[in-house]
Design a protein around this nucleic acid. Structure first.
Lengths: 366, 366
DNA sequence: CGACTCATTGCATACATATTCAAACATGAT
DNA sequence: ATCATGTTTGAATATGTATGCAATGAGTCG
């Protein structure tokens, strides 16, 4: 049972008698463009123009207004501005699973990038509960006249896609493509990456490969699986065993157990992301006593920071998070000029070889 | 060098000739309360009241309006609503370091909780670059008439605190207290937790304890350090060695090396959070070949999900993230009624004993 | 039936800004 | 000096909703 939380409450001192009220204790009323206009002796329109880049206003007058604004502590009210302009400078970001460190990294980079670009980030949960789709809150977020909607590996309902099209809100899928190619997307080069992993494992002289799959209906999983299988087929290698770990830790532990309990136990496992690979290493090492990197090879995908920890030394194919975020930002800026357009961006990664896979040329024959 | 990203662009088909335009292809113009009013044969005020809980309107009329609204796909424009009400239903959330899994977990829970409460989450980066304080963007966020500002372990500048007070925006510090107690806060019971860890380590019959500190100027670090040191002093144990890991992985690896290279190597390390403890385990095991949990004990703080992974089995003191988020939400709702008030909430955790510390009663004497 | 209360209703206005329009103004060319 | 051209300017209006106010109507009680 949970203990109750301790609480200590207090109040701010009441404001002093009205005689002192002129001292700037509490100025609840916010300062508006009209206040600045009066202070600078100009019209409200002029104040607005002073804060609108490219607006028609004399340079000296602008300076006078800016000075008055700073004196009063004025900033244009973003709500009123958004209402007028029909555009809010807000970007909606839907995130499903923050348990995957790759998306955490992405979110942090995206928050920084948007901030530098002067855009606000509205975060909302979009749990891809199978078939249920994102929460209803996303529909309200659309009404904020957002500049764009970024979905971090979230499957959208067709209803949502339709709503965005009608509201002229560009949708950018991050790390996922849509079957219909009816929206923009920024993804890694999943097929090439999977082929690179396959080549690396075959070169390590492994006999029996396995593929630990992620969420079956995701495009990343489909592409990684396809690239892996195709390369094996091209090289005349037997097809890989397969289990599903759903891109999550616990299910991947179970899936790894199933693989390692087989009579024809695989000697190499390619996991469709790093989280699953970390689970596979954990099970192989601590439950089966295997020497990962010698008796069994395990490779992942994403190259999250943890993959580099000495305890894992995970061979992986990197996804360039920073580059992908930069491309996302570029798309956001480009698409708000042309909402109807869409663009698919593919960012190449690189094979990162570490100790979790057997080095090429050092095969251990029984 | 980074390879260029591949790109594939396409345009949506141009809208059909105007003869077909009445088919609902693109309705750029959003539907307003006035449209609904006309459809339902009422005034605009009535529509507004139909969407305002507690407003004075007849039940049957409300139903008729809701029906008309659904038919037209109407939702009140949140920007206009916020402008009128002087409150936006938006909560600003400032986050410094998402490398700490505890804050990731918190952010996810907070996003869910706010969403269920019908509040929007505006995320902004607040890198606690020593002395520089949060980014300037936070000042603009204040102008959104946000309901509250939640800071996830971020040290605010006094300037920011002052601005929030004047704008009547309640500030809630998560996992950090302010020296002046001039704002609300939700924290774990750091002192008790540190004392529990100390008691556990002493009971394990350790001879030489060390404390791996986090960011020196954070309240969490100060409290955990104080609780740990006080308990040792009370029990007559010698004071702990000390190094600083800054709550981050790499610096903690270096700090652990320094500790383990000493002639008087400690046989137990209490790390001020789990991230640092994972680094300590990694170094002890892979660089010094130590059997963690027998030859050396390592304990952390937070009990993040990774602490439970079999590869770490980290003894830790849990911070109840869900409970803390619930309290934060309660505070948000309470404080927007009384902006001047503030409240300190302390949520107790629990000692979670795993394999990374020597079991009590099984001391290995040389 | 009259006076009273009370819940509804619509009109008008406020929220804080951006932008259209026409007028004012300056500039330069003829 | 005249005209054409182009830049500034402020008044007016628009964005989409919430709400104060007075008026309407329906009951209720005497």
């Amino acid at each position: 049972m949970q203990m109750a939380c301790r609480t200590r409450a207090s109040r701010i001192a009441p404001r002093p008698a009205d005689g002192y009220a002129q001292s700037m204790e509490i100025d609840n009323e916010p300062v508006t463009s009209l206040d600045v206009a009066r202070e600078a002796g100009v019209s409200q329109s002029a104040v607005s123009r002073a804060f609108t880049p490219g607006a028609s206003i004399a340079a000296d007058k602008r300076e006078r207004i800016i000075a008055a604004a700073e004196k009063l502590g004025y900033r244009p009210n973003p709500l009123a501005r958004s209402l007028m302009r029909g555009r809010s400078n807000i970007v909606g970001v839907g995130v499903g699973d923050l348990a995957n460190p790759f998306f955490v990294q992405t979110l942090q980079l995206l928050a920084d990038a948007l901030d530098r670009a002067g855009l606000r980030l509205m975060l909302f949960p979009a749990h891809a509960g199978s078939g249920s789709g994102p929460e209803p809150s996303i529909h309200e977020i659309l009404h904020y006249r957002i500049d764009a909607l970024v979905l971090l590996s979230v499957s959208p309902t067709s209803d949502l896609t339709e709503q965005c099209r009608r509201a002229q809100v560009p949708v950018i899928h991050f790390n996922r493509t849509t079957p219909a190619h009816d929206a923009s997307s920024v993804v890694g080069d999943n097929e090439s990456g999977a082929r690179a992993i396959a080549a690396h494992l075959l070169a390590g002289d492994h006999r029996r490969l396995a593929f630990l799959a992620g969420t079956p209906d995701s495009s990343t999983n489909a592409e990684r699986e396809a690239g892996f299988a195709q390369y094996l087929a091209e090289q005349g290698a037997p097809p890989a065993l397969q289990e599903c770990g759903e891109y999550a830790f616990e299910p991947s532990m179970a899936a790894t157990r199933r693989l390692l309990l087989r009579k024809d136990r695989p000697d190499a496992i390619f996991c469709a992301n790093d989280t699953m690979a970390l689970a596979a290493i954990t099970v192989a090492r601590h439950e089966f006593g295997l020497d990962v990197g010698r008796e069994i090879s395990i490779a992942g995908y994403d190259d999250v920071p943890m993959a580099g920890w000495p305890g894992f030394a995970l061979t992986s194919y990197s996804q360039p998070a920073l580059r992908m975020v930069e491309e996302t930002l570029r798309l956001i800026l480009a698409l708000r000029a042309e909402p109807g357009r869409h663009e698919q961006v593919i960012c190449p990664g690189a094979l990162i070889v570490r100790g979790s896979t057997r080095p090429v040329g050092l095969a251990v024959r029984p």
